[in-house]
């Protein structure tokens, strides 16, 4: 019975958990390991399932906690994951900017530089296409917190894109 429930309701959200973990740790292989560990943990806690109101939110929280633990234990990032947004590319050359701007991967890097709360709210809204209410439940936030984080995240990305876009235009004008 519980295995059937697991197959029908929990395994199908593993891709979503994977994308969520990638957004936190920034590495696909590590995110896969995290999701694998989460999926086994969820199975081992099957006795608690009947007390859980929102299974998906519970799985997302577990993935989030494990991803953050892994990230902290490895000291991967020099910047505190709860820290403030910081523009790293001040020293980047115009050529580097041009190369990175051409790739979609560059947006992933921008996302990783956002504070954790902003990054995760934007992930759940823009990629997973969840409602504000669902984001509230999955991230344990209030509605104003969700909206504020989303606003800040999108605006930081916008400023960054505009800045790099203008830089590129100026660079191409000089080249002409």
């Amino acid at each position: 019975m519980s295995l059937q429930y697991y197959k029908e309701n929990i395994l199908p959200i593993s891709d979503k958990l994977f994308r969520f973990a990638v957004r936190i740790v920034g590495d696909r292989s590590e995110a896969e390991d995290i999701v694998q560990e989460v999926m086994i943990k969820i199975w081992n806690k099957r006795k608690d399932w009947e007390f859980i109101d929102n299974m998906e939110a519970w799985c997302v929280k577990m993935t989030r906690n494990l991803s953050i633990d892994k990230l902290r234990s490895k000291h991967r990032r020099t910047q505190d994951i709860d820290g403030l947004f910081h523009l790293k590319d001040a020293a980047a050359s115009p050529l580097e900017k041009a190369e990175s701007n051409d790739t979609i991967q560059h947006i992933s890097k921008m996302m990783l530089e956002l504070p954790e709360a902003q990054r995760l709210v934007m992930q759940l809204r823009d990629i997973e296409e969840l409602s504000y209410k669902e984001i509230m439940e999955q991230l344990d936030m209030t509605m104003p917190q969700v909206k504020t984080n989303l606003f800040r995240a999108r605006n930081k990305i916008k400023k960054r894109l505009n800045k790099e876009g203008n830089g590129l235009r100026k660079h191409s004008n000089i080249a002409r």
Binding site: S14, D15, F18, R19, V22, R28, E32, V35, N101, I104, H106, I107, S108, D126, I127, I157, K158, L161, N162, E164, G165
Partner: peptide, 19 residues
């Protein structure tokens, strides 16, 4: 142009799945 990259990235990320 700059925003196009953002929205294209969002759609591509939706296809990011486990092996």
């Amino acid at each position: 142009e700059a925003y196009k990259v953002l929205f294209v990235w969002q759609v591509e990320e939706q296809d990011l799945n486990l092996p």
